[in-house]
């Protein structure tokens, strides 16, 4: 009774995932000649995981290989990124990680088996700008209202975790300005947004992800007062940046996640991957799948990501090291 259905699930899955590639032999003996696994160091269902799963089918077509997305969660990304860093540098074990998960554990915990130099980025998958949000009914109409209140007294500000990018960024802001802000850590973006909407905290400082935050902004449940990035975001041109408000010298506060290989991976393999990535990141299907405001408007290649990653690493090391 049960068993006939299981092969059905499995084969349906195989058909959809591999596009029937199982029946065909690999075209050449060159890369890729076997299945590629992409390690995702965060749980299934999180935004990094979801966007990797949107990207994977396209990469399969481009590379003509089976791609397996594996979740290796734990230790704020330290477990999965550690597995990735120890794997053979042959292009068959990749990682899809956020900059925070790549950079922070070695800074906060010391030796976790990898550091920022263990990643050779292939290309940007998505970005989520950090935003300062308040509920629709909040008396804070503009960022000026918020910072005036913070100067005068104490404002409770929800953050998605003490060692999250927004959390570290707020700590630096408080240290450098002496503003009366009390950061309150919640369980990720979802928990923070719940607290903002229920009024448990007066404002939230979160990465504007497509899963939880952006829909609330669009529906008008919350209002964005400011963004942390130095340049205004394309989709929110009128929202001021913290820099334009006079808060400079803050650490790099922009959440992004990318595909990476080990540094010793052969250049031609990385080149092949980067090409495939470029084609995918500019295809309508992937861009739509990733969601509005997530996919970069033009492909951001490995070298550029590496520069951003190193900037983030040195900023966080300065502020937390």
């Amino acid at each position: 009774m049960r068993f006939p259905t299981i092969p059905a699930v499995a084969s349906a899955g195989l058909l959809l995932v591999t596009g029937c590639s199982l029946t065909e032999a690999p075209a050449s003996s060159e890369y890729p000649s076997q299945s590629i696994s992409i390690i995702v160091p965060v749980p299934a269902g999180s935004s990094t995981d979801l966007s990797t799963r949107v990207l994977a089918p396209c990469l399969e077509q481009e590379l003509d290989a089976t791609i397996v997305v594996e979740n290796r969660e734990g230790g704020s990304g330290a477990v999965g990124n550690g597995v990735f860093a120890r794997a053979k540098a042959d292009g068959y074990t990749l990682v899809s990680t956020t900059a925070a998960n790549a950079v922070l554990p070695p800074i906060l915990e010391g030796d976790v088996g990898y550091d920022v130099d263990s990643f050779r980025p292939v290309g940007m998958i998505g970005t989520a700008p950090i935003v300062l949000v308040v509920p629709a009914a909040s008396p804070f109409k503009t960022a000026k209202d918020f910072f005036a209140a913070a100067k005068a007294g104490t404002v409770k500000l929800g953050i998605p975790g003490a060692t999250s990018v927004p959390g570290i960024s707020v700590d630096t802001l408080i240290d450098s300005t002496g503003l009366g802000i009390t950061p309150v850590p919640f369980d990720g973006n979802g928990g923070t947004m719940t607290a903002v909407l229920s009024g448990e905290v007066q404002a939230g400082y979160v990465s504007g992800d497509a899963a939880v935050v952006l829909p609330r902004v669009e529906s008008g449940d919350v209002r964005v007062l400011a963004t942390a990035v130095t340049e205004p975001i394309e989709t929110m041109p009128d929202v001021p940046t913290l820099k334009s408000l006079g808060y400079t010298d803050l650490p790099y506060a922009d959440s992004f996640w990318f595909l990476a290989t080990q540094p010793k991976t052969p250049d031609d393999v990385v080149g092949r991957l980067e090409n495939a990535m470029k084609n995918c990141m500019t295809s309508d299907k992937v861009v739509t799948g990733l969601g509005k405001g997530v996919a970069p408007s033009s492909f951001i290649g490995g070298d550029q990501v590496a520069t951003l990653l190193r900037q983030a690493a040195s900023d966080y090391a300065k502020n937390r090291g």
Binding site: E73, G74, G75, S76, A78, V79, G82, P105, L108, E109, G110, D111, V112, G113, G161, A162, T163, G167, P185, D187
Partner: peptide
């Protein structure tokens, strides 16, 4: 065991990365 969710400090991990996220 693992990361204290409020302060981010690590408890009882003894430098083992697998313990930093807590035990499953």
């Amino acid at each position: 065991i693992g990361q204290d969710p409020m302060s981010g400090a690590t408890r009882w991990a003894f430098g083992v990365p697998d313990l930093m996220g807590g035990i499953d």
